[in-house]
Amino acid sequence: MRSAVINPLTACGVLVAAAWMVVSVAGAALGGQDTPAGLAELSPEDVQALGEARDCLQDMAADEGEHDYVRAEALLALNRVHEALGDWGRPGLADWYERLLLSEKAKRFLSPVLAGAQAACRGGRYHLGGVREFWRRLDAALQARGEPVDRQIEDARRAFQGRAARFEKPPQGIARRLKPLVVKVQKMNVGRHLKPYPVPSEPEKGRK
């Protein structure tokens, strides 16, 4: 089965590796409990370990003095921790991602920031309203800056629109293809096949 954690060998420095280890250890211990609804509950120790990893990764990702690749890896790991904790709706998280996205160096790790920002704006809800709102806010912010929009952002927007379009075309419905069962009654014409027995004729006179 799928293990809890993504890529421990990113070699992005001791800090990221250490954070990954925390996530891995917590991840490996997952699944000890199962609620009736089947959601994998984390033990308090797991939650604590993942929470510490999250805080550490968040600091690393936001650290402007850190190497870009370390920040990018930290963001990938951070996104995965949020997936494990299921805490995309954490207060302030969407703002944090959006601030990072609009920061000067964000171009160098746009992909994980955009992914995280959209997931955080979805906020663990089962609709895309928050993500649509995120794109509106981002448009406004970028327009206010008057800078050309980065191609990666345009690509991510198109990808989102493509995904959202899937929900604009619900299945056509099965109604027109369902017909009631009909009992087929064979037209009966038994009489056609029934003929009376021939009546024996009278013996001719004079014959024995």
Binding site: M1, G27, A40
Partner: peptide
């Protein structure tokens, strides 16, 4: 299935798998 769910992990795919077991 209960045993499999314990080992399934904590990502979205694991949740989908759990859904199928139910």
């Amino acid at each position: 299935f209960a045993e499999a769910r314990k080992q399934a992990g904590d990502d979205a795919d694991a949740m989908r798998f759990r859904a199928l077991t139910y």
